[in-house]
Design a protein around this nucleic acid. Structure first.
Lengths: 339, 339
DNA sequence: ATGAAAGCGCTAACAC
DNA sequence: GTGTTAGCGCTTTCAT
């Protein structure tokens, strides 16, 4: 790989002249002719600035880490795109990390921030993370923005409008005439589950409807959790006629289990999910869903990280624009007359 | 962040002594007492070696890039896990990249290899990549191993046993008694599509069965492509009684479209897919699938990259151990008597 | 057994 | 307008 020195030699100028020209400083203070010679030499040698050299000197990598529990979760696709678009616009690169197998918060933070691999990071901690693992978050002064999650005392976060999303989903079933509306939620300790619960509750209260406590399950967000939730709900008397599922993956599992148990959707049970993704379109029946704004969250999170890096400002934001949007497909219908 | 100098000062020794101890050189040539003081000081200061400093000095990052067309494709989950497990065992880190939105091969290679962000990379080029974009691959001497793809003249690759996978899938339908077996394949220019086609063909030939040329579609590997494939196949006379789908995502789409057209699976049409993933278990009916060894491919690819980095050796490998395995679910059955 | 010093590629403050 | 130089954090050779 060609270095600045190689380019300088070829162009017959000093290293610093080359650096000034190629690092794009607004005032490079070189004559047009010299500049041209430098640019030519660089391109002939396929010069690329060495990442380590630059990072070492400037103490900046121009990289932000994006760490989510499961990279391959379809829900994060949009979030990553948003993050990358925003990063690119600011001249940053995104380094993707996973927090699912890595030891909770600690190790990944130490590695990325502590070793200077990134200048800051957007971190979505999984629901399985014990609060203890987040200690480092607070002790470190590093530019870390939490995404769809929280840690006591940490400031700097960007979250979806979970409450509104769950409220819209619940509202949809209410409008169809359902009253026995269940809620298949995430784990009790989950940050987003609490917020989605609030939205569900708000919608029911607004309609003056009360449901048995058992109508809310808290099995979790995975496909299997969804299956579990359905089994629990169908064991209740009276059975709910509609269910709001707090996560699209759980909804897919719930639907599969309904199929297995011979419960017809939407005839016997309407299903609406918070989140949308390509999987929701390809179940049978296709799932009615509330689209959440993951793209905007990704953008906002990275913007927030960069602002924190460059100016030190912190903020806690809820992404409400654009608002969650209902996509009606075929998994919801008015309750069956004989209930 | 604490530096070697900080640790040295605290321990009352020289920087080089600290470096020797902390960088884990087998022979650090220090007394037990000194070593202890150094280790203590380092841990008190939460010392972490600076990535850029080390990389600059050693001209090695201990990072390998893993670039795939679509990170959020469930198929790559296992591949990534395999890659990370292998990398970790060798003291390397994996840097995930996407090749879907980035300009084909060129830009991402220049960025990762050219700027010295990684020591080598495993690269799966998408089917959409024009051969031209891969020129850099050949000109560069960088340690790049192609995964499930090929570039004319490039040596260094690791691929799935696509042919065997397709052959097993086709064989399953044959054993069930099907004769009118269609094949929903990837795009004609796709490397894996050619190999899967060969497996399909081999199985049919082995059974002495001939099918119309139109029984093979080449719509592609996406969900929508699967829908298209089904529509084309169902327009044929006579209709096939079974279809091998070359990709699980396409299979999901194909199944959805069958539903929409009122074609019953497996009564009217048996569907078997090459690849398995959690989505295949959650369709209705659950998809019979041939599990491909993505985990092993990930491991092998990274091992190959590291070998190339450290010894310069190149190899082209087909992952055949463990072999592709058939998982029978509910989307396949003997052909319906009335065809 | 330990330390001093050079240098990896780069930027920037400071000469000239 | 251009060049010289110091130094970012680290590893490693060579003295001591």
């Amino acid at each position: 790989m060609a270095t600045l020195g190689d380019v300088a030699a070829r162009a017959g100028v000093s290293i610093s002249a080359v650096s000034r020209v190629l690092s794009g400083a607004p005032d490079s203070r070189v004559s047009a002719a010299t500049r041209q010679r430098i640019v030519d030499a660089a391109s002939e040698l396929h010069y690329r600035p060495n990442f380590a050299g630059r990072a070492l000197k400037s103490a900046r990598t121009q990289v932000v880490g994006l760490v989510v529990p499961d990279i391959t979760n379809a829900l994060f696709t949009e979030l990553m795109h948003g993050a990358e678009d925003e990063a690119t616009e600011h001249g940053y690169t995104v380094l993707l990390g996973r927090s699912d197998d890595v030891r909770p918060g600690g190790e990944v933070i130490a590695r990325l921030i502590g070793e200077g691999r990134v200048d800051g990071m957007a971190l979505q901690v999984g629901d399985g993370v014990p609060p203890a693992g987040l200690d480092d978050l607070l002790t470190t002064q590093a530019p870390i923005v939490l995404v769809n999650s929280s840690a006591p005392g940490h400031s700097g976060s960007v979250v979806l409008d979970d409450q509104r999303g769950a409220q819209i989903a619940t509202g949809h079933l209410l409008e169809l005439g359902h009253e026995r509306i269940a809620f298949a939620n995430g784990l009790p300790r989950s940050f987003t589950a609490k917020r989605r619960h609030a939205g569900y509750k708000l919608a029911l209260d607004g309609a003056g409807i009360k449901v048995p406590k058992q109508y809310e399950t808290r099995a979790g967000y995975t496909v299997d959790n969804g299956r579990t939730a359905l089994r629990r709900l169908m064991a209740l008397t009276p059975r709910p006629t509609g269910v709001v599922v707090a996560n699209v993956n759980a909804a897919v599992g719930l639907l599969g289990e309904a199929r297995k148990l011979g419960i017809k959707v939407p005839e016997d049970l309407s299903v609406v999910t918070v989140h949308d993704s390509w999987t929701a379109e390809n179940t049978w029946p296709p799932l009615t869903a509330v689209q959440m704004q993951f793209y905007a969250v990704g953008r906002t999170a990275v913007r927030s990280v960069i602002r924190r890096i460059e100016t030190g400002e912190t903020s806690d934001e809820v992404v409400t624009d654009p608002p969650p949007e209902l996509v009606v497909r075929e998994s919801t219908a008015p309750p069956h007359p004989r209930g």
